[in-house]
Design a protein around this nucleic acid. Sequence first.
RNA 1: GCCCAGGUAGUGUAGCGGCCUAUCAUGUCGGCCUGUCACGCCGACGACUCGGAUUCGAAUUCCGACCUGGGCGCCA
Length: 429
Amino acid sequence: MASPISTITPESERAEIAGWVHEVRDLGGLTFCLIRDRTGIVQVTVNRKKAPAPVLEALSRLSRESVVRIGGTVKAIAKAPGGREIVPERFEILSPAESPLPLDVVEKVPAELDTRLDSRFLDLRRPRVAAVFLIRSAVMAAVWEFLAARGFVNITTPKLVAAATEGGTDLFPVAYFEKEAFLNQSPQLYKQIMMAAGFERVFEIGPIFRAEEHNTTKHLNEATSIDVEVSFADDREVMDLLEDLILFVYERVAATCRDPLSWLELQLEVPKKPFPRLAYRDAIGIAARRTGEPLKFGDDFGAVAEKALGEEMGVHYFIVDWPTAIKPYYAMPREDDPELCRAFDLMHPRMELASGSQRIHQHDLLVHQIRSKGLSADSFEFYLRPFRYGMPPHAGWGLGADRLVMTMLDLANIREAVIFPRDRHRLVP
RNA sequence: GCCCAGGUAGUGUAGCGGCCUAUCAUGUCGGCCUGUCACGCCGACGACUCGGAUUCGAAUUCCGACCUGGGCGCCA
């Protein structure tokens, strides 16, 4: 069995390692090979006069990024990286790499994102790139741990659905035997149905699909959503939950991802609680003042307004008290002012991260809201039925996992936060 | 979908009517080299996205297609 490279120290006597050929420096009588595995890099030093013939033979056939297995003695050498090097007795090429490489793994020459995504498997061999996904994994684990500790039940809901249930966004049609189906844009309706099932606290982390032809650094056609729904909770309570979750995730990443963060040369700053709660009406005012645009009540925030707001706030913040007219039909209108609803968006200074609301749990009011949005209640029957048999009051939100990682790590493009992103033009790999 | 910018060796770039038999770096191959750590030095290899047009002459200008980046729009 090969040992992880990071476990080899100057005190080690022998080592057997397996990994990729990171770099080869041939000085003539001496050749230095840097071998990389997921834990680190070690130098393997071959002396032309002293090395066994099979080692020299393997060395002569060696290409960068080939997979090798090497066994030998470990020497403590101050001049070597990490203060140690391996003098090989066995040098086996397990899997040769062709050349030229489609991408420079050593990063002497930069590559464009498009080139990197075409050869993502090679791109991911770069620690700086791998770091993003090690951290993303830690984020997901932290989310799961946080919610599980609070009694949330993890659910999995269909991604193949019968109808464009929410309206608004365009859906991808798929052939479903003799029927037409769609890829789901959100687990919204299903997680609400689970409230009627009496589960009280559910979450789902899964893909959502949007067939929008957007072409930006913060939109994808396939994204990962962290969705939560809580019975007997109102909008304020699930906002607190969301705020605590964000803090917990940041703290966990800061504490457990030191190496990946250092590869990214990132000082992670944990946001402070509480996040400011900004009323929609005030947000419109600020955006109008800062941009000079004639924004008025009922408008949505465009990219320029969103950026101006972020600059003004400078930290994570909530926009609350949205107009009922521009939020989905399931958002609960306020009793004292039905023009406003109990919906909120969680914003990072760069972009929206999450949106949620207290939901309407009264059947007739829900039907009314669906109709007032110009939608047909008939196609929502599977969703509406549970509201007639004891639906508790509930609230919830959906948080964009890709955007969470992107903003946390200050990535320029959301595609960098997704291993195999799906956008308007990219379907492969 | 609209607007802007762009497409040159495997990768990243320079060149923007004749000086291009196309620059530089990295890479690959060959040679020299026993302590490199972006090893160094010498030599070689390797590219103008495609199709039309203008011109004596096009990588360079124009038109179209395809592709890419960015901004905007759209976006439960």
